[in-house]
Amino acid sequence: MENFEPKIVGFLCNWCSYRAADLAGSARIKYPPNVRVIRVMCSGRVDPAFVLKAFSMGADGVMVAGCHPGECHYIEQNYKAMRRFYMLKQTLVAMGLEPQRFELVWASAAEGQQLAEAIERMTDNVRRLGPLRWAENWADDPQREEALQHIVKEHEEALEVIS
């Protein structure tokens, strides 16, 4: 699987992260072509069903990107996106998905560079994992418990940033 190019779906919010991607373009920042963007008005619009659908249709990874906590165009809807994200991620990981395949990124409209880096990081991670082989992964993963705990911890830390 040397030439494996992962297909990653990126749900980007209209106000911050989509504009961050625009900015990365205007600044001619280079990053891998693996993330394909779907624009939504707000990260809060990302229905968990979209994520499941993406994976079921063959996406190797899904990225959700929104405005930084406290900077949501819709005041606080990215918090709701965040809660959903961690809940969904925990479920998916418990069901055998490698945690690196589903990521949440905050990128303000000024953070083209940061978004590009996040895309590069995620692409590398998913490329290393190879294509999504959920059926084979269903077997017990010794590190799953640790990964789940890590997600809980990450969520707690994210909540701290908010409060």
Binding site: M1, N3, F4, E5, K7, V9, R36, A54, F55, S56, M57, G58, A59, G130, P131, L132, R133, W134, A135, E136
Partner: peptide, 17 residues
Amino acid sequence: LWDAIADGRPASAAPDG
């Protein structure tokens, strides 16, 4: 994801890139 779908590579199948 048209190419992934065309690949016939939904989650359960073994991939062939």
